[in-house]
Simulated scan of single mutants.
Amino acid sequence: MPVWICATCGNHYPETGKPPDNCVICADERQWIPPTGQRWTTSEELASNGYRSDVREVEPGLLGIGVEPSLGIGQRGLLVRTSGGNLLWDPPGFLDEQALRAVEEAGGLHAVSSSHPHMYGAIIEWSRAFDAEILLAEADLGWLTRPEADVRSWSGALDVLPGATLVQCGGHFPGSAVLHWAGGAAGAGALLSGDTVHVTPGEDRVTFAWSAPNRLPMPERAVRRIVEAMRPYSYDRIYTGWWSPTLHRNAQRVVDDSAERYVQFLRGEAPSVI
């Protein structure tokens, strides 16, 4: 029996004779179900339709693993390489032998984690392929659609590997997290944010959203909590959940400035607001 994959978000559901009636993640107000109704697929169907992994070096020590053509919300995973092992972050919903081989050649996989439930993707398959530990925020465990998985939960902050720390920020989901990679950006530090923090298309500022597709804003207290959770960590770069955009430099200052600007708009205090 196949693992069922939601075609809209890319999350996996248990092996059963037929798919569930709906995807609980897409039925939530932060996601969406197509007007034509719930759609399901399988890894076998995707492969037969020409889907394949897209593996690229993002920067030294950081490997990107995406899917071509785009699947679900279109995220690409990031493999962070450390002296103590590798961590895969936000894996997309499809993997193949090319992706498995690339990770094997990069040193295998110690752990796999995710920023929030929209990006759990093929996390179970990656864990099984490399006997890797699954690390998920305790606050969001109820959203895991494969309850048979053996998961280690965490909250607050967790040092996973040398220079790799999971940080719970909340906001989008109660357990929404970032991964701080101290060795990123040539040692200046990088944040892997999923969509806890959104880099804008001009790659010169960031923004925040409770639901990006449904255009629902983040309340002020949540924005401030995100910024404060990230403050103890030094970082100069932010990678979101997609190949682009990326905030390449001065990320810590940009986050602080963008958060204040965002709050001005929430309060109706921005000078340009009529």
Rank of each mutant, 00 (worst) to 15 (best):
L179Y: 04
A190D: 02
L136F: 15
D150C: 09
H116Q: 06
M119F: 15
L136N: 01
A190G: 01
L191V: 15
T145A: 11
A129G: 08
T196D: 08
T145S: 15
A149N: 03
G170K: 09
S113G: 07
E138C: 09
L191I: 15
A190H: 02
T145D: 07
D150T: 12
V197N: 00
A164I: 05
I124G: 08
I123D: 01
P147S: 05
D159F: 10
W126L: 10
G175L: 06
G163Q: 05
I134W: 02
H118A: 11
P147D: 04
L166R: 01
L135I: 12
S115L: 01
S114T: 12
S114F: 12
R152S: 15
S153L: 03
A157S: 15
V151Y: 06
P174W: 14
L135N: 07
G142N: 09
F173K: 04
S127D: 00
S155M: 14
R146T: 14
L136E: 04
G163I: 00
P162M: 11
S115R: 13
L166A: 12
W154Y: 11
L135P: 01
S176N: 01
S153F: 10
C169M: 09
L166G: 03
L136M: 13
A132G: 03
I123N: 05
V151P: 00
G163L: 02
D131Y: 03
P174L: 12
H172G: 02
A164Q: 08
S113W: 10
V178K: 06
Q168Y: 08
V167S: 04
T165L: 03
A139F: 14
A185C: 05
H172I: 14
V197S: 01
Y120N: 12
L135F: 10
A164L: 11
V197K: 00
W154S: 03
S153R: 03
V160W: 06
A157C: 07
G171V: 11
S193M: 05
I134R: 01
T196V: 10
G170M: 10
A137Y: 07
G187I: 02
Q168W: 09
L158W: 05
R146C: 09
V178W: 00
G156I: 13
T196Q: 14
G189R: 07
D131M: 05
A139P: 13
E148H: 13
G170R: 11
A190R: 05
V160A: 06
T145E: 06
L144N: 14
I124C: 12
A164K: 04
G183P: 02
A139I: 10
L135K: 13
P147G: 03
D159G: 06
D150F: 05
A186S: 12
